[in-house]
Design a protein around this nucleic acid. Structure first.
Length: 107
DNA sequence: TTAATGACCTATC
DNA sequence: CGATAGGCCATTA
């Protein structure tokens, strides 16, 4: 409305929104695609605040191990698994996503 | 204003 | 090979 956000967040959100359906990306990957491999923390922060949950599929963003983090801006931790499963993503018995099969290529 | 924390990753020993 | 430490950006108190 009046405040303009830094390009950092916009870039991060852009990469997250670019994740194809049925795939997941990692923070480091998005940070790297955004242009700075050290934005890993800001990426997590950007999704944490999630100012635009309607355009930022946080559930498609996972950590380096393929496991979602805690607290979701969508309104449910179990939502994560439900959303990814609804897209066709499989989960490991440990509760992690199958990065070997659903990790976004980055293209 | 300064300081501290945070949904992390990478590099090095 | 495995484990540890550090560092970066932004936000909040």
């Amino acid at each position: 409305m009046k405040e303009e956000k830094p390009n950092t967040f916009e870039l991060i959100y852009e990469q997250v929104c670019r994740i194809p359906y049925g795939k997941v990306a990692t923070y480091g990957m998005i940070a790297r695609l955004a242009g700075n491999p050290h934005w890993s923390r800001v990426v997590g922060y950007a999704l944490h605040v999630n100012p635009r949950p309607g355009e930022i599929p946080c559930h498609r963003v996972v950590n380096r191990f393929g496991g979602l983090s805690s607290a979701f801006a969508f309104g449910g931790c179990g939502m994560h698994r439900a959303l990814l499963e609804a897209e066709g993503v499989e989960f490991d018995a440990d509760g992690n996503v199958d990065l070997d099969r659903f990790l976004w290529d980055g293209k």
